[in-house]
Each structure stands twice: as structure tokens, then as C-alpha cells.
Amino acid sequence: MTRRPLLDPRSWWADAVTGERLLLAAKTAAAAVLAWYLAPLVPLASSEYSYYAPLGVLVSMYPTVARSAMSGAQAILGLAVGIGLGLGSLALVGAGMPRGAAVAVVIGLGVLLSGVRALGVGRDWVAIAALFVLLLGGADPDGYSISYLFTMAFGVLVGVAVNLLVFPPLRVRSADRRLTQLRDDLVSDLDEMARALAHRQFDPHRAGAATQNLARTLDSVRAEVDASDESRRYNPRGRRVREQGALHRRRLDALAASAEATRTLTVALTRLLTDSGVDARLPGGARTALADAIAAQSRLVGAPFDRSDGPLAEAADTLDRYIESLGRSEVATTVETLDGWDAAISLRRMTEASREFAGR
């Protein structure tokens, strides 16, 4: 599969214009306008600084409600730390420190405090808030600081509320699609492996590349399932799909185990088939039986959830026939055939990983 260059406008458009992103953009814009108009009503804050309310919306609006709440709280905490640092630097200026030196001090300390991982996304706001208080506080730094913090906090509350009340996002369907894609990729790799083995065309480089692609796909699918779990937290709609979320997690565990077994199977086949003496290590009958076992395993992984137990029985039977063919070979007890047994172990692990979803 060819990948578009990073600077290709079409890839930018494809990333930006999605249904989920359009909904997030609309909610963020609406929340920002709402916060702007309501900001003058915030207690203890001057209406002069109402423009910080839309900024609070921006720092709190994320694709999931849980992430919005967490990021908003972390941003406010980072702002509070930065404001405190800025007020401290103003005290130093009042004591006679040159303002340029105070700027250097506040920036240096702000960058140091930005390394505190507990602040999360709030780390990015420590130095900025401190610098704003120092340079923009003017004759009333306390009033500016209170207005800055309270108005931003109000914007965060508006953003989280809008995200919670207006179509709170659920990424359950997206996780389901990505899991299905992972399953299809795994089935495709196993089918190709079985055909190559049966026709004596096994290419270790191609098989290794397919395994690496499968590992990358697994990482992205795992991240999508995690995002789906996060989207259900604090989400009123999440209760209705709780069981589906648990199913996604079990599917992911099963597919991850199958993907790891596919990797070890690829390693075993590479050692079996790339050196001389292949027919001694894997006689013709054993080769055919192994190809059949891999093909049956592919059908088991790709079968629908409401299947009968036929694919599971077929996978077990073909694997037993392969093991019997290894036992009948003249070199069955030599070191060179250990890779053949490793292949059997990998297939057995794959069968066990799929067992939960086998049968009615």
C-alpha cells in the first residue's frame, strides 16, 4: 500500500474533514461563542478580560468527555502555578530587580516547572501564564490574575459542559471497525503464508514485512480500543455500550495473542525453509499438513461470532494431522526439526486464543 507524502494536501484534508472532527469543531465554536457572551457574568472577574473564556474552551475541548475534563483541570492547575510564579516575579521587580532579569527568571523557572509530569497538559501553561502576569498585569496584577484564572476556568467549564451535553462522543463503532480490520489483515497474512508454503514459494522477507505491518496495525488498534474505553467514561451514552466495550477488549486480547503467534510462526517457517535440507526438516507430507493447518487457522480467525464450532474443530483436526506427520518423519527427534514443533506450538496458541469466540 502506498502512502501519501506528509505535505500532500489530500492527506491533510482526509485527516481534518471527518465526521468526528466536524462535530468537534462545531461544538468548540459554539461553546467559545457561548463562553464569550457569558464571561462578563463571572464573579470577581473583570469583563475586560472576557476573551480568556473562549481560550478556556479551546484548552478543554477534546474528542472525549473524560479527556476534556482531565485536560481542563490540568490546564487550570498549570495556570494557577504560572500565575503564582508571575506574582512572585512582580514582587522581585518591586524590590528593585530589573524587569528584563525578571523575565529571564520567570521563563527559566516556568520551563523547569513545565517538566512536572503531574501537571499533564497544564505544563504548557506555566511559563505562559507567568509571563502574561509579569508583562500584562499592569497596575493591578492581583485583579488581572484573578480575572485571568477565573475567566479561563469558566471557559473550561463551558467547554466540558457542551462536550457532555451535546452529542457526547462515543468511539465504539470506530473501535469495532479497527478490530475487524486487524482480523482481516491477520487472515490475509495467514492465507498468504499457507499458499506460499503449499507451493514452495515462501519468501522470508515478504513474510517478515507482513509481520511488521501487522504489529503496527495492532498498536494502532490497541490505541483505538483505549480511546473507545475512554470515550465511555463520564458519558451518559456509555452505559448502553458497556458490554460492547468489554467485548472489544476480549477481541483485542484474542487478536493480539493470534498476532504474536503469527510472528513466532513466521520465525519458525523462516528457519525451516530458507536453508538447505528443507525436505529433511519438513518432509513433503508434513509441509502439506502444515499448510492445511495454517489455512484452517485462518478460517477460524476470520469466522463470524455466531458460527458453529466447525472452524474450531477443523483447526484442531488439521493441527493434529500435522503433529502426527512430524511424529512419523524419520528425523522427528533431531534438533533440526524443533522449528517444526515450534510451528505447531504457535498454531496451538492461535487456536486457544480463538476458542472463546468459537462455537455457539
Rank of each mutant, 00 (worst) to 15 (best):
L186R: 01
S174E: 14
G155L: 08
P169K: 04
S174R: 14
L190S: 01
A175V: 05
P169T: 05
G159K: 04
L179N: 06
Q181Y: 07
L170W: 08
S188Q: 09
V172R: 09
L179D: 08
V187M: 00
S188T: 08
D191N: 07
D191G: 00
S188W: 03
R171Y: 11
L186T: 07
R177P: 00
L170I: 08
S174H: 12
R183K: 12
D191K: 04
F167Q: 12
V162K: 08
V162W: 14
L179K: 05
L186P: 00
V158E: 02
N163T: 09
D185M: 07
D176L: 07
D189W: 00
L165V: 15
L164K: 08
N163P: 08
L165P: 02
V160L: 11
Q181V: 05
S174Y: 05
V158D: 01
V158R: 09
V160F: 06
P168R: 05
L157F: 13
R173H: 06
G159C: 07
L157I: 07
V156E: 10
L186S: 06
A161K: 03
N163I: 03
S188C: 02
F167Y: 15
L170H: 06
L190F: 03
L179I: 09
D185S: 12
G159N: 09
V166G: 10
V162H: 12
Q181E: 13
V160G: 11
L182Q: 13
L179G: 04
V158Q: 07
L190C: 00
V187G: 02
L179Y: 03
L170V: 11
S188G: 07
L157V: 14
L179R: 08
V156R: 12
L165E: 03
A175P: 02
L165C: 14
R171L: 15
L164R: 14
L157A: 15
S188A: 15
D191Q: 08
N163M: 01
S188V: 00
A175Q: 03
D189C: 00
F167P: 01
R183Y: 02
P168W: 04
T180C: 02
G159I: 04
L157R: 11
T180R: 15
V166P: 06
A161I: 10
V172Y: 03
S174K: 11
L165Y: 12
L170N: 11
D176N: 08
P169C: 12
R177Y: 11
D191T: 04
V158W: 10
Q181F: 12
V162P: 02
F167R: 15
D176I: 00
D184F: 04
D191C: 02
A161L: 12
V160K: 14
L170C: 06
L165T: 13
T180K: 10
L164I: 04
A161W: 09
L170P: 03
V166R: 15
Q181D: 12
P169S: 09
D189L: 02
R177Q: 12
V160I: 13
D176Q: 11
V187K: 03
V156G: 01
Q181H: 13
D184S: 15
R171E: 06
L157W: 13
V187C: 01
S174L: 10
R177T: 05
L164C: 10
V166S: 10
S174P: 02
V166D: 12
V172E: 11
A175K: 08
R178S: 09
P169H: 08
F167S: 11
D185Q: 10
S188K: 01
R183I: 01
R183F: 00
R178M: 14
P168L: 06
G159M: 07
